[in-house]
């Protein structure tokens, strides 16, 4: 790589203003991205908002009704069970595999890459159809277990990328050999060196999988449907029953997505701090 240039002065002047066309484009982008979300937030606390520009009044009634809705707690619980179970299975299946391939089995890297891209190329409805067709016997048929298998596949790339990046960044192969040369066994290398170092990657991946699965609708509705109703299913149901309550559900869903994103950012910045610290002390 090229060494740093000899002029350290190439810091753009901070007072430079964005050009008019930039303001226009970014303004349009913000408008498009934010107006639907903000409107939903406002709609969920508006008494009536179909005849006027601004809502006629404000109320928390719809949240009250959302929380009171039959199924609300059950669906929330189901969503949590599904998301957490998926994160757990993902961690158990993907993390050791990625580590193994990077340190012991470089020959399997292309295969791993293909398997990780595959879910992008399979529409969720097709995956649902295939699984429902093959596993038409109990206890798997249309069961939450089959669903977990499906969402693990579907959310695989979200776990893979942060974990693989983390493992690559710490040069896991060299670290493993260094650890072993100092007398550590495989278990000690993993628990004392590898896992602490890739923890930010594992956390980001887990959060991404959690958020993705929490909002998952297609696989859930097509594989298990009403037998294991999750939060997104309840939301869709209410879009047909009561718009105000549906908007309250949407707000809950958006808010969870924002929170998880903030958490991921936070974990990411923690990871960087840890990295620079490691360099300073090492």
């Amino acid at each position: 790589m090229a060494k740093s240039r000899s002029t350290p002065f190439h810091v753009p002047n901070k007072k430079i203003r964005p050009a008019g066309w930039q303001v226009f484009l970014v303004g349009f982008f913000l408008f498009y991205m934010l107006v639907p979300i903000i409107s939903t937030y406002v709609f969920s606390v508006a008494t009536r908002w179909d005849r006027t520009i601004l809502p006629e009044g404000y109320t928390l009634e719809f949240y009250q009704r959302a929380f009171d809705a039959s199924y609300f707690t059950i669906t929330l619980r189901n969503s949590l069970i599904l998301s957490l179970a998926t994160v757990l299975v993902s961690l158990l299946v993907i993390v050791p595999t990625v580590y193994w391939v990077h340190t012991r089995l470089a020959g399997a890297k292309p295969l791993l890459d293909i398997l990780m891209i595959l879910p992008f190329g399979i529409p969720t409805v097709v995956l649902a159809l295939a699984l429902v067709q093959v596993y038409n016997f109990s206890p798997l048929a249309r069961s939450p277990f089959l669903l977990i298998g499906a969402v693990v596949i579907y959310s695989m790339p979200f776990m893979y990328r942060p974990v693989a990046n983390a493992i690559q960044a710490i040069d896991a192969h060299v670290m493993t050999e260094a650890g072993q040369s100092l007398g550590a066994n495989v278990f000690q290398v993993l628990s004392k060196i590898i896992i602490p170092n890739i923890l930010p990657g594992i956390l980001s991946g887990s959060l991404l999988v959690f958020a993705t699965v929490f909002a998952e609708y297609t696989l859930t509705s097509l594989i298990v449907g009403a037998r294991f109703k999750t939060f997104p299913l309840l939301l869709v149901e209410f879009t047909r029953i009561n718009g105000n309550v549906a908007s309250a559900f949407s707000v809950i869903s958006f808010t969870i997505a924002w929170l998880v994103s903030i958490l991921i950012l936070w974990v990411g910045s923690k990871g960087q701090v840890a990295k620079t610290k490691a360099i300073r002390t090492g």
């Binding site: 240039r5 000899s6 002029t7 350290p8």
Partner: peptide
């Protein structure tokens, strides 16, 4: 010729 930040590249540019 000079250390980085001496202004040589700036002059060239």
């Amino acid at each position: 010729l000079g250390p980085s930040g001496c202004g040589k590249t700036t002059t060239l540019r």
